[in-house]
Simulated assay, not measured.
Amino acid sequence: MEFSNKSKLLIVDDSAFMRKLISDFFEGNSKVEVIGIARNGKDAIKKIQQLKPDVVTMDVEMPEMNGLDALKEIMEVSPVPVIMLSSTTVSGAENTLSAIENGAVDFVAKPSGTISLDLHKIKEELVHKVEQAAHVPVAKLKKPIGNKKTVLDVASTNNKSESTPLNKTILQQRTNKGTANIIKQKSTWSNTSKKIVLIGTSTGGPRALQEVITKLPETINAPILIVQHMPAGFTKSLAERLNNLSKITVKEAEHGDRLQNGVAYIAPGGWHLKLQKIGTNFEIQLDQQEPPRYGHRPAVDVMFENVSKFNDFDKIAVIMTGMGYDGSKGLIDLKQNGNVTAIAESADTCIVYGMPKAAVETQLVDEVVAVDEIAQMIMKYLP
Protein backbone atom coordinates (compact mmCIF):
# COMPACT_ATOMS: atom_id res chain seq x y z
CA MET A 1 0.00 0.00 0.00
CA GLU A 2 3.06 2.22 -0.31
CA PHE A 3 1.57 4.25 -3.18
CA SER A 4 -2.06 4.37 -2.02
CA ASN A 5 -2.00 8.14 -1.48
CA LYS A 6 -0.50 8.88 -4.91
CA SER A 7 -2.48 9.77 -8.03
CA LYS A 8 -2.28 7.01 -10.64
CA LEU A 9 -1.08 8.06 -14.11
CA LEU A 10 -1.52 6.26 -17.43
CA ILE A 11 0.79 7.43 -20.27
CA VAL A 12 -0.55 7.12 -23.83
CA ASP A 13 1.90 7.61 -26.74
CA ASP A 14 2.77 5.59 -29.83
CA SER A 15 6.50 6.31 -29.37
CA ALA A 16 8.34 4.05 -26.91
CA PHE A 17 10.94 6.79 -26.52
CA MET A 18 8.29 9.35 -25.49
CA ARG A 19 6.61 6.91 -23.11
CA LYS A 20 9.95 6.29 -21.38
CA LEU A 21 10.78 10.00 -21.24
CA ILE A 22 7.43 10.93 -19.69
CA SER A 23 7.64 8.01 -17.22
CA ASP A 24 11.09 9.25 -16.13
CA PHE A 25 9.60 12.69 -15.36
CA PHE A 26 7.58 11.09 -12.56
CA GLU A 27 10.38 8.97 -11.11
CA GLY A 28 10.43 9.69 -7.38
CA ASN A 29 7.41 12.04 -7.59
CA SER A 30 5.67 12.19 -4.21
CA LYS A 31 2.22 12.87 -5.69
CA VAL A 32 1.99 10.80 -8.89
CA GLU A 33 2.76 7.17 -9.71
CA VAL A 34 2.89 5.82 -13.30
CA ILE A 35 0.71 2.71 -13.30
CA GLY A 36 0.77 1.85 -17.00
CA ILE A 37 1.34 2.78 -20.64
CA ALA A 38 -0.74 2.52 -23.81
CA ARG A 39 0.40 2.65 -27.45
CA ASN A 40 -2.68 4.17 -29.12
CA GLY A 41 -6.23 5.30 -28.48
CA LYS A 42 -7.76 1.80 -28.57
CA ASP A 43 -5.15 0.51 -26.17
CA ALA A 44 -5.78 3.54 -23.94
CA ILE A 45 -9.53 2.86 -23.65
CA LYS A 46 -8.83 -0.75 -22.65
CA LYS A 47 -6.12 0.19 -20.12
CA ILE A 48 -8.27 2.92 -18.53
CA GLN A 49 -11.01 0.39 -17.85
CA GLN A 50 -8.51 -2.13 -16.49
CA LEU A 51 -6.22 0.12 -14.43
CA LYS A 52 -8.63 2.91 -13.43
CA PRO A 53 -6.05 5.74 -13.46
CA ASP A 54 -6.73 9.10 -11.80
CA VAL A 55 -5.18 11.01 -14.70
CA VAL A 56 -3.97 10.32 -18.26
CA THR A 57 -1.41 11.98 -20.54
CA MET A 58 -2.27 11.38 -24.18
CA ASP A 59 -0.58 12.18 -27.45
CA VAL A 60 -2.88 13.82 -29.99
CA GLU A 61 -1.37 12.18 -33.08
CA MET A 62 -1.32 8.36 -32.95
CA PRO A 63 -2.00 5.49 -35.40
CA GLU A 64 -5.08 3.20 -35.21
CA MET A 65 -7.00 5.64 -33.04
CA ASN A 66 -5.76 9.19 -32.47
CA GLY A 67 -5.94 11.05 -29.18
CA LEU A 68 -8.97 13.12 -30.15
CA ASP A 69 -11.14 10.13 -31.11
CA ALA A 70 -9.94 8.22 -28.05
CA LEU A 71 -10.78 11.15 -25.78
CA LYS A 72 -14.36 11.35 -27.06
CA GLU A 73 -14.86 7.65 -26.31
CA ILE A 74 -13.10 7.85 -22.94
CA MET A 75 -15.36 10.71 -21.80
CA GLU A 76 -18.38 8.61 -22.80
CA VAL A 77 -17.30 5.22 -21.44
CA SER A 78 -14.99 5.83 -18.47
CA PRO A 79 -14.32 9.56 -17.98
CA VAL A 80 -11.02 10.58 -16.42
CA PRO A 81 -8.95 13.81 -16.40
CA VAL A 82 -6.74 13.89 -19.52
CA ILE A 83 -3.76 16.12 -20.37
CA MET A 84 -3.10 16.19 -24.13
CA LEU A 85 0.42 16.37 -25.60
CA SER A 86 0.24 18.35 -28.79
CA SER A 87 2.44 19.52 -31.64
CA THR A 88 2.45 23.25 -32.34
CA THR A 89 1.37 22.90 -35.98
CA VAL A 90 -1.84 24.63 -37.08
CA SER A 91 -3.68 21.31 -37.27
CA GLY A 92 -2.14 20.31 -33.94
CA ALA A 93 -3.51 23.49 -32.35
CA GLU A 94 -6.97 22.95 -33.85
CA ASN A 95 -7.04 19.32 -32.66
CA THR A 96 -5.93 20.41 -29.20
CA LEU A 97 -8.77 22.93 -28.92
CA SER A 98 -11.22 20.25 -30.08
CA ALA A 99 -9.82 17.99 -27.37
CA ILE A 100 -10.40 20.64 -24.69
CA GLU A 101 -13.93 21.20 -25.99
CA ASN A 102 -14.47 17.44 -25.71
CA GLY A 103 -13.37 17.25 -22.09
CA ALA A 104 -9.57 17.34 -21.84
CA VAL A 105 -8.44 19.28 -18.77
CA ASP A 106 -5.47 20.94 -20.45
CA PHE A 107 -2.60 20.39 -22.86
CA VAL A 108 1.15 20.72 -23.09
CA ALA A 109 2.80 21.72 -26.36
CA LYS A 110 5.74 19.52 -27.38
CA PRO A 111 8.79 21.70 -27.97
CA SER A 112 9.78 20.07 -31.27
CA GLY A 113 7.26 17.89 -33.02
CA THR A 114 5.86 14.40 -32.53
CA ILE A 115 9.04 12.91 -31.05
CA SER A 116 10.60 15.70 -29.00
CA LEU A 117 14.13 14.82 -27.93
CA ASP A 118 14.09 18.02 -25.89
CA LEU A 119 10.90 17.18 -23.97
CA HIS A 120 12.75 18.01 -20.74
CA LYS A 121 12.03 21.69 -21.56
CA ILE A 122 8.39 21.16 -20.60
CA LYS A 123 8.98 18.67 -17.77
CA GLU A 124 8.03 21.10 -14.99
CA GLU A 125 4.89 22.25 -16.79
CA LEU A 126 3.74 18.71 -17.58
CA VAL A 127 4.37 17.39 -14.07
CA HIS A 128 2.54 20.34 -12.49
CA LYS A 129 -0.45 20.00 -14.82
CA VAL A 130 -0.70 16.25 -14.23
CA GLU A 131 -0.57 16.74 -10.44
CA GLN A 132 -3.36 19.33 -10.63
CA ALA A 133 -5.51 17.49 -13.20
CA ALA A 134 -5.68 14.35 -11.04
CA HIS A 135 -7.96 16.26 -8.65
CA VAL A 136 -10.36 17.79 -11.20
CA PRO A 137 -13.88 16.38 -10.73
CA VAL A 138 -14.88 14.35 -13.79
CA ALA A 139 -18.41 15.79 -13.69
CA LYS A 140 -17.02 19.22 -14.62
CA LEU A 141 -15.21 17.82 -17.65
CA LYS A 142 -18.33 16.16 -18.99
CA LYS A 143 -20.49 19.25 -18.60
CA PRO A 144 -21.60 20.20 -22.11
CA ILE A 145 -20.87 23.63 -23.50
CA GLY A 146 -24.05 25.73 -23.41
CA ASN A 147 -26.17 26.49 -26.43
CA LYS A 148 -23.82 28.27 -28.82
CA LYS A 149 -26.69 30.13 -30.48
CA THR A 150 -27.85 31.83 -27.29
CA VAL A 151 -27.03 35.51 -27.60
CA LEU A 152 -28.26 37.80 -24.86
CA ASP A 153 -31.19 40.13 -25.32
CA VAL A 154 -29.49 43.40 -24.42
CA ALA A 155 -32.65 45.27 -23.46
CA SER A 156 -33.84 42.66 -20.98
CA THR A 157 -30.33 42.10 -19.61
CA ASN A 158 -29.77 45.76 -18.82
CA ASN A 159 -33.00 45.87 -16.83
CA LYS A 160 -32.02 43.03 -14.51
CA SER A 161 -31.04 44.36 -11.13
CA GLU A 162 -31.74 41.49 -8.74
CA SER A 163 -28.07 40.47 -8.49
CA THR A 164 -26.45 41.66 -5.28
CA PRO A 165 -22.74 42.52 -5.23
CA LEU A 166 -21.00 39.70 -3.40
CA ASN A 167 -18.86 41.78 -1.13
CA LYS A 168 -21.07 44.70 -0.14
CA THR A 169 -21.04 43.59 3.52
CA ILE A 170 -17.36 42.68 3.43
CA LEU A 171 -16.47 46.08 1.97
CA GLN A 172 -18.49 47.90 4.61
CA GLN A 173 -16.66 45.95 7.30
CA ARG A 174 -13.23 46.75 5.92
CA THR A 175 -11.51 49.68 7.59
CA ASN A 176 -8.27 49.90 5.65
CA LYS A 177 -7.49 52.89 3.48
CA GLY A 178 -9.14 52.73 0.08
CA THR A 179 -12.34 50.95 1.09
CA ALA A 180 -14.37 54.16 0.95
CA ASN A 181 -13.08 54.77 -2.55
CA ILE A 182 -14.09 51.31 -3.70
CA ILE A 183 -17.62 51.64 -2.26
CA LYS A 184 -17.92 55.05 -3.87
CA GLN A 185 -16.89 53.55 -7.22
CA LYS A 186 -19.86 51.20 -7.12
CA SER A 187 -22.26 54.07 -6.43
CA THR A 188 -20.84 56.26 -9.22
CA TRP A 189 -20.90 53.55 -11.91
CA SER A 190 -22.28 55.39 -14.90
CA ASN A 191 -23.95 54.16 -18.06
CA THR A 192 -22.68 57.16 -19.99
CA SER A 193 -18.92 56.71 -19.58
CA LYS A 194 -16.82 54.55 -21.93
CA LYS A 195 -16.25 50.97 -20.87
CA ILE A 196 -13.67 48.25 -21.52
CA VAL A 197 -13.99 44.53 -20.66
CA LEU A 198 -10.88 42.66 -19.46
CA ILE A 199 -10.93 38.86 -19.19
CA GLY A 200 -8.24 36.62 -17.70
CA THR A 201 -8.27 32.82 -17.62
CA SER A 202 -6.04 29.73 -17.74
CA THR A 203 -6.79 26.00 -17.26
CA GLY A 204 -10.30 25.32 -18.58
CA GLY A 205 -10.31 28.76 -20.20
CA PRO A 206 -11.05 27.83 -23.83
CA ARG A 207 -14.32 26.17 -22.82
CA ALA A 208 -15.18 28.99 -20.42
CA LEU A 209 -14.45 31.62 -23.06
CA GLN A 210 -16.70 29.80 -25.52
CA GLU A 211 -19.45 29.88 -22.90
CA VAL A 212 -19.04 33.64 -22.39
CA ILE A 213 -17.97 35.13 -25.72
CA THR A 214 -20.59 33.33 -27.82
CA LYS A 215 -23.35 34.90 -25.70
CA LEU A 216 -22.27 38.52 -26.15
CA PRO A 217 -24.36 40.52 -28.66
CA GLU A 218 -22.61 42.20 -31.59
CA THR A 219 -24.00 45.52 -30.32
CA ILE A 220 -21.83 45.31 -27.17
CA ASN A 221 -20.68 48.84 -26.45
CA ALA A 222 -17.09 48.06 -25.41
CA PRO A 223 -13.89 46.43 -26.65
CA ILE A 224 -12.81 43.20 -24.93
CA LEU A 225 -9.21 42.28 -24.06
CA ILE A 226 -8.52 38.62 -23.26
CA VAL A 227 -5.51 36.92 -21.72
CA GLN A 228 -5.68 33.12 -21.95
CA HIS A 229 -2.55 31.31 -20.79
CA MET A 230 -1.44 29.49 -23.95
CA PRO A 231 1.79 29.07 -25.88
CA ALA A 232 2.44 30.73 -29.22
CA GLY A 233 0.59 29.10 -32.10
CA PHE A 234 -2.52 28.14 -30.13
CA THR A 235 -4.07 31.55 -29.48
CA LYS A 236 -4.65 32.17 -33.19
CA SER A 237 -6.62 28.93 -33.53
CA LEU A 238 -8.57 29.83 -30.38
CA ALA A 239 -9.43 33.28 -31.78
CA GLU A 240 -10.56 31.82 -35.11
CA ARG A 241 -12.68 29.16 -33.40
CA LEU A 242 -14.41 31.72 -31.15
CA ASN A 243 -14.87 34.13 -34.05
CA ASN A 244 -16.70 31.44 -36.04
CA LEU A 245 -19.05 30.72 -33.12
CA SER A 246 -19.71 34.29 -31.96
CA LYS A 247 -21.76 37.32 -32.98
CA ILE A 248 -18.91 39.66 -32.03
CA THR A 249 -15.58 39.74 -33.87
CA VAL A 250 -12.80 37.77 -32.16
CA LYS A 251 -9.19 38.06 -33.32
CA GLU A 252 -5.68 37.37 -32.14
CA ALA A 253 -4.39 40.78 -31.10
CA GLU A 254 -1.81 42.43 -33.37
CA HIS A 255 0.57 45.23 -32.50
CA GLY A 256 -1.07 48.53 -33.45
CA ASP A 257 -4.67 47.22 -33.53
CA ARG A 258 -6.98 50.14 -32.78
CA LEU A 259 -9.55 49.26 -30.12
CA GLN A 260 -13.11 48.99 -31.42
CA ASN A 261 -16.37 48.23 -29.64
CA GLY A 262 -17.71 44.76 -30.36
CA VAL A 263 -14.26 43.28 -30.98
CA ALA A 264 -12.48 40.83 -28.67
CA TYR A 265 -8.66 40.81 -28.83
CA ILE A 266 -6.89 37.68 -27.57
CA ALA A 267 -3.29 38.18 -26.45
CA PRO A 268 -0.99 36.05 -28.63
CA GLY A 269 1.01 33.34 -26.86
CA GLY A 270 4.47 34.61 -25.93
CA TRP A 271 3.46 38.31 -25.75
CA HIS A 272 2.11 40.53 -22.98
CA LEU A 273 -0.95 42.58 -23.98
CA LYS A 274 -0.87 46.31 -23.20
CA LEU A 275 -2.53 49.52 -24.41
CA GLN A 276 -1.11 52.78 -25.72
CA LYS A 277 -3.03 56.01 -26.16
CA ILE A 278 -2.51 57.68 -29.54
CA GLY A 279 -4.40 60.99 -29.67
CA THR A 280 -7.94 60.07 -28.63
CA ASN A 281 -7.62 56.43 -29.71
CA PHE A 282 -6.21 53.39 -27.99
CA GLU A 283 -3.95 50.90 -29.72
CA ILE A 284 -2.73 47.48 -28.66
CA GLN A 285 0.91 47.09 -27.77
CA LEU A 286 2.46 43.63 -27.74
CA ASP A 287 5.43 43.36 -25.43
CA GLN A 288 8.12 40.69 -25.24
CA GLN A 289 10.59 42.83 -23.30
CA GLU A 290 8.83 42.37 -19.97
CA PRO A 291 9.59 38.89 -18.60
CA PRO A 292 6.88 36.29 -17.94
CA ARG A 293 4.96 36.52 -14.66
CA TYR A 294 4.65 33.25 -12.74
CA GLY A 295 5.86 31.58 -15.93
CA HIS A 296 3.14 33.20 -18.07
CA ARG A 297 3.45 35.54 -21.03
CA PRO A 298 0.80 36.80 -21.63
CA ALA A 299 -0.06 37.39 -17.98
CA VAL A 300 -3.38 38.72 -16.68
CA ASP A 301 -1.63 40.88 -14.07
CA VAL A 302 0.40 42.69 -16.74
CA MET A 303 -2.75 43.52 -18.72
CA PHE A 304 -4.69 44.64 -15.62
CA GLU A 305 -1.80 46.77 -14.33
CA ASN A 306 -1.31 48.45 -17.70
CA VAL A 307 -5.00 49.24 -18.24
CA SER A 308 -5.30 50.58 -14.67
CA LYS A 309 -3.16 53.55 -15.79
CA PHE A 310 -5.89 54.81 -18.13
CA ASN A 311 -8.90 56.61 -16.69
CA ASP A 312 -10.55 57.14 -20.08
CA PHE A 313 -12.94 54.27 -19.42
CA ASP A 314 -14.54 52.26 -16.64
CA LYS A 315 -13.35 48.67 -16.49
CA ILE A 316 -15.16 45.38 -16.12
CA ALA A 317 -12.56 42.84 -14.99
CA VAL A 318 -13.45 39.15 -15.28
CA ILE A 319 -11.36 36.34 -13.79
CA MET A 320 -12.27 32.80 -14.78
CA THR A 321 -11.07 29.23 -14.26
CA GLY A 322 -7.33 28.62 -13.92
CA MET A 323 -4.46 27.43 -11.74
CA GLY A 324 -2.48 29.88 -9.65
CA TYR A 325 -3.27 33.48 -8.77
CA ASP A 326 -2.55 35.52 -11.92
CA GLY A 327 -4.91 38.50 -12.01
CA SER A 328 -5.36 39.17 -8.29
CA LYS A 329 -2.41 41.58 -7.98
CA GLY A 330 -3.53 43.41 -11.11
CA LEU A 331 -7.08 43.58 -9.75
CA ILE A 332 -5.80 45.54 -6.75
CA ASP A 333 -4.14 48.02 -9.13
CA LEU A 334 -7.34 48.35 -11.16
CA LYS A 335 -9.48 48.97 -8.06
CA GLN A 336 -7.11 51.66 -6.81
CA ASN A 337 -7.39 53.59 -10.07
CA GLY A 338 -10.84 54.49 -11.36
CA ASN A 339 -14.20 52.75 -11.65
CA VAL A 340 -13.93 48.97 -11.77
CA THR A 341 -16.46 46.16 -11.48
CA ALA A 342 -14.83 42.79 -10.80
CA ILE A 343 -16.51 39.50 -11.71
CA ALA A 344 -15.16 36.07 -10.72
CA GLU A 345 -16.29 32.66 -11.94
CA SER A 346 -17.77 30.59 -9.12
CA ALA A 347 -16.08 27.46 -7.78
CA ASP A 348 -19.09 25.43 -8.97
CA THR A 349 -18.21 25.81 -12.65
CA CYS A 350 -14.41 26.30 -12.61
CA ILE A 351 -12.32 23.41 -13.92
CA VAL A 352 -9.65 24.70 -11.52
CA TYR A 353 -10.72 27.18 -8.83
CA GLY A 354 -7.36 28.90 -8.48
CA MET A 355 -7.29 32.31 -10.15
CA PRO A 356 -10.91 33.24 -9.24
CA LYS A 357 -10.33 32.07 -5.64
CA ALA A 358 -7.24 34.30 -5.35
CA ALA A 359 -9.26 37.21 -6.76
CA VAL A 360 -12.13 36.66 -4.31
CA GLU A 361 -9.62 36.54 -1.44
CA THR A 362 -8.58 40.13 -2.22
CA GLN A 363 -12.15 41.06 -1.13
CA LEU A 364 -12.39 43.30 -4.18
CA VAL A 365 -14.67 41.08 -6.29
CA ASP A 366 -18.17 42.47 -6.79
CA GLU A 367 -19.93 39.51 -8.41
CA VAL A 368 -19.32 35.75 -8.25
CA VAL A 369 -21.34 33.87 -10.86
CA ALA A 370 -21.43 30.57 -12.76
CA VAL A 371 -19.69 30.62 -16.13
CA ASP A 372 -22.98 30.54 -18.05
CA GLU A 373 -24.07 33.77 -16.31
CA ILE A 374 -20.91 35.79 -16.87
CA ALA A 375 -21.97 37.24 -20.25
CA GLN A 376 -25.23 38.43 -18.71
CA MET A 377 -23.33 40.00 -15.82
CA ILE A 378 -20.97 41.81 -18.19
CA MET A 379 -23.93 43.24 -20.14
CA LYS A 380 -25.60 44.38 -16.92
CA TYR A 381 -22.73 46.82 -16.36
CA LEU A 382 -22.57 48.14 -19.93
CA PRO A 383 -24.56 51.04 -21.41
Rank of each mutant, 00 (worst) to 15 (best):
F3Y: 15
L10M: 02
S15G: 12
S15N: 10
S23I: 00
D24G: 06
F25R: 03
F26P: 01
E33T: 15
K46P: 08
I48N: 14
I48K: 13
L51I: 14
V56H: 11
M65D: 06
N66A: 01
N66F: 04
L68R: 00
D69A: 08
E73T: 09
I74P: 09
V82D: 06
G92N: 05
N95A: 15
L97Y: 12
F107G: 10
V108F: 06
L117Q: 02
K129A: 06
V136L: 05
P137Y: 04
T150G: 07
T150H: 15
V151E: 06
S161C: 02
T164V: 09
L166T: 13
N167F: 11
K168G: 05
Q172C: 01
Q173P: 00
A180H: 12
W189M: 11
S190M: 06
V197G: 00
I199R: 04
T201S: 15
A208L: 00
I213N: 03
E218T: 14
T219E: 15
G233I: 02
A239S: 15
A239K: 09
N243C: 02
I248M: 08
T249I: 13
E254P: 06
E254N: 10
D257W: 12
R258V: 15
P268T: 07
G270M: 10
H272G: 06
L275Q: 09
Q276H: 14
K277Y: 10
I278L: 12
N281L: 07
Q285I: 15
D287T: 07
Q289F: 13
E290K: 05
R293H: 09
H296F: 05
V300Q: 10
V302F: 05
M303F: 03
E305V: 01
K309C: 12
F310D: 06
D314M: 11
K315V: 09
I319C: 10
I319K: 11
M323C: 13
Y325A: 15
K329V: 03
A342F: 06
A347M: 11
Y353H: 11
G354H: 01
A358T: 06
V360F: 09
L364G: 12
D372H: 12
I378V: 04
M379C: 02
